[in-house]
């Protein structure tokens, strides 16, 4: 039975869209600093990039707090089950209009592929970008009368890592923006992330599963 279900909470949606905005801003300003595009003006690009970076860090701090206190972090625990089915769905099933192999529920919003990719972003790409970004910003040129250990002899490796991460994030966004059109309807995922509500199959079987999940989460 299809029901309108409140799946994304206010903070979650705010976090998602804020993150999206900041990543777009960071990408645009970042690639201007990198010399690839011209848009804001170089000095503005640097300033906006820094502001966006700080805002992003604040957002991350809140997001971590929210994930921990709400237990939502468990959404990202990777599962092997259904992973192959999910890949097969995107490669073949989707063209035959086959059903989604993973049922989306409040307690399990992410399919196995999403779990894996988002977890990778959260524990690998984003931390690497934040750390290399902070080093980039607070990097100390070899200088006199300052703390020797804060001197970094070359910005190059930091910049290379930060740039590489930026390319990966853009590639992710390209894929992500496309994949949101693969919901039950083309706009259903987008609508859900805006309003918080999505029409989901709320079958009895799922209720059972939900209870099981709830027990799992409590543990």
């Amino acid at each position: 039975m299809i029901k309108k279900i409140y799946i994304y909470r206010a903070f979650e949606r705010f976090w998602h869209w804020m993150q999206a905005f900041l990543i777009f801003l960071l990408a645009a300003t970042g690639f201007e600093v990198h010399g690839s595009i011209k848009f804001f003006g170089y000095q503005n690009a640097v300033t906006y990039h820094q502001i966006a970076a700080y805002a992003f860090i604040v957002l991350i701090a809140f997001a971590i707090f929210w994930h921990l206190t709400s237990g939502q972090w468990k959404q990202y625990i990777p599962t092997r089950g259904n992973l192959r089915a999910q890949i097969n769905y995107y490669l073949f099933g989707i063209f035959k209009h086959a059903p989604h192999p993973t049922k989306k529920t409040v307690l399990s919003k992410l399919n196995p592929l999403q779990k894996l990719v988002y977890l990778g972003l959260k524990i690998l790409v984003i931390p690497v970008m934040v750390i290399s970004g902070l080093l980039y910003m607070y990097y100390r040129y070899p200088q006199q009368n300052r703390i020797e250990s804060l001197n970094i002899e070359s910005l190059a490796p930091i910049a290379y890592i930060h740039t590489a991460g930026a390319f990966l994030l853009i590639a992710f966004i390209a894929a992500h923006v496309y994949l949101i059109t693969t919901g039950s309807k083309v706009t259903s995922n987008l609508k859900a992330m805006i309003t918080g509500y999505e029409d989901l199959d709320d079958g009895e079987k799922n209720e059972e599963k939900d209870i099981k999940d709830a027990i799992l989460l409590k543990k």
Partner: peptide, 17 residues
Amino acid sequence: PARDRSSIIDYSGMAII
């Protein structure tokens, strides 16, 4: 920044995108 770049990273990054 902007003067220097790693062409390997830039080209492979563009390729991935």
